[in-house]
Amino acid sequence: MPAKPLVLADVEIAVGPRVLLRRLNLTIGAGETHILFGPNGSGKSSLLSAIMGLPPYHVTRGEVRLGGERIDNLPVDARARLGLGMAFQRPPELDGVTITALARALRADAGLADAAAVLDLADFVRRDINVGFSGGEIKRWEILKLFLQRPQICLFDEPESGVDLEHIAAVGAAMERLLGRDGTGDQRRSALIITHTGFILDHVQAGMGHMLVNGEIICSGDPNRLFAHIKSHGYTLPPWASEPAAAASDERIAS
């Protein structure tokens, strides 16, 4: 499946009558990695859920397009089959459903052992998904799930939160491998990553950062520079930042 760009054009996202995010314009080109920064409650997870098509989030205005095809009116499984995948921040526990059973259902059991070993989850393949997993184990499983699913565009919801320091590098390395950046010859995938701590920036090559405040993307630019600004000045508009619409066309760093 060839890589496709993900485009959000003037998107508004709501839960029922309540609008959570508005005026979202974002283009993630094929093979690019973007980082989304924002304070608690700014709507980062809601944005990822809405792109994925998870209830109760709805796109109430604008369009979400994947490779030119409009997807915001499709159910979640159809979006996944078109190439979207998501590593959840707080996934549900699935009693009785083992990692092996899920891999079998995805017809990906042949690659399970190798992928699990990379993420130090070889002993987990017969465990029920997310049942009794630590925070770090959940995050590693969510990345392993994407290895099994092999989407074109990966949505990561705080992949490093709850991961102990010794595993953050492994998580980052696994993400790089998943995204096709480690030279193993796998296809290049795109990514949109939510990070709260910024630790993952030390391990994942990202070309573009966005700051989401009060349900709107207020600026975009180099992710490391943006994160440095946030550490010093909080979630304020940096003087050097481009307008979000301009960033989409001028400052986007193609991989």
């Binding site: 098509g53 209830p55 979640v76 499984d77 996944a80 995948g85 549900p92 899920l102 995805l106 699913q149």
Partner: peptide, 9 residues
């Protein structure tokens, strides 16, 4: 929804 997000019907 969690399982469907991995592509299954």
């Amino acid at each position: 929804s969690y399982l469907m997000a991995s592509g299954m019907s």
